[in-house]
């Protein structure tokens, strides 16, 4: 009985906290704009077929490197493909890679962190060592070796990013759990015989959500940039798949940079804008979710 009432209370408290945070969020203009830009760009990519009638793969060799016009608002590339369509469709893959990798890393990090933090002892030290090895591993070499092992592909790249990107979240969750573990409500739950999984996920995890969310946004931004960087080194997604990184990489030659500005400006701005928006959002969330403020 007491349990249910307290649960309701917690819920009521939560909604009011949520309200406060929403209010804070609205007052933090940059974060709001960041959020809107992220959502807007994601929607544009998802609904690309409704926004442009061009197929990003459709070549037109009689219409190459056309400057922006009413017909092609971002111009056409060296194969006569519509750059606007490419940027829209490219966003799909880039955002997909960024979000899914961050999600995968977060899930692994949270699970491992929760287990390590809740149980402590041997499991904790094993997982900790494991994460230390991964952190000590020069990330770049790990990525390079994994990419050359798994081969190029969108999903392989996500696997690589997940493998190399779970440690921050792990450490975060573990440390939070180590402190939360000692609090009264956890021992109360335990003495009520509530299953461990329920204690971890229903009671302890929600209390550590804020830093996880912030870490998640930072990771999305990081992975999108990492994809672009790997594309630059020729190790990212297969070159024929349009991603912001690939489109931009295709446009890095001096001749393109000076003569066909529309080929790199659009994807360059798309990628910078999206990452900027996510970073503003993350910064805002840090302020909003920080209980100290």
């Amino acid at each position: 009985m007491t349990m249910t009432t307290s649960a309701i209370e917690v819920k009521a408290k939560k909604t009011s906290l949520l309200k406060i945070r929403m209010k804070k969020m609205r007052s933090n203009k940059l974060a709001t704009i960041g959020l809107l830009v992220c959502i807007g760009m994601t929607l544009l990519s998802v609904f690309a077929p409704f926004i442009t009638s061009y197929d990003p793969a459709q070549m037109n060799l009689s219409n190459i490197t056309q400057a922006p016009s009413a017909e092609h608002i971002f111009g056409t590339d060296k194969l006569g493909r519509d750059v606007f369509a490419q940027v829209l469709y490219g966003g799909r893959v880039s955002i997909y890679v960024g979000v899914l990798s961050a999600l995968g890393g977060t899930i692994i990090g949270v699970l491992a962190g929760a287990i390590a933090g809740y149980f402590g002892g041997k499991i904790d030290s094993i997982l900790l060592r494991f994460s230390e090895i991964f952190m000590t591993f020069p990330q770049l070499i790990l990525v390079l070796v994994l990419v050359s092992l798994l081969g190029q592909g969108v999903n392989n790249l996500i696997i690589v990013f997940v493998i190399t990107g779970w440690m921050t979240t792990f450490r975060l969750v573990r440390n939070e759990f180590l402190t939360v573990r000692e609090e009264t409500y956890v021992s109360v739950c335990r003495s009520f015989g509530i299953p461990t999984s329920s204690i971890i996920f229903k009671h302890m995890l929600p209390n550590t959500m804020s830093p996880i969310i912030v870490a998640f946004t930072v990771n999305v931004a990081g992975f999108i940039l990492a994809e672009a960087g790997l594309s630059f080194l020729g190790l990212g997604v297969p070159v024929t798949t349009p991603t912001w990184g690939n489109i931009m990489n295709a446009a890095q030659s001096i001749d393109v940079v000076t003569n066909y500005w529309w080929l790199w400006l659009a994807p360059g701005i798309a990628i910078s804008l999206f990452v900027l928006a996510i970073n503003f959002l993350g910064d805002g969330l840090r302020d909003i979710l920080d209980p100290k403020q």
Binding site: M59, L79, S253
Partner: peptide, 18 residues
């Protein structure tokens, strides 16, 4: 070949075959 023109060439060939 890693140069952009070769990549464009292969992309175009793939498109023709499709």
């Amino acid at each position: 070949y890693g140069d952009q023109t070769s990549i464009n060439f292969m992309t175009a060939v793939a498109q023709y075959l499709t």
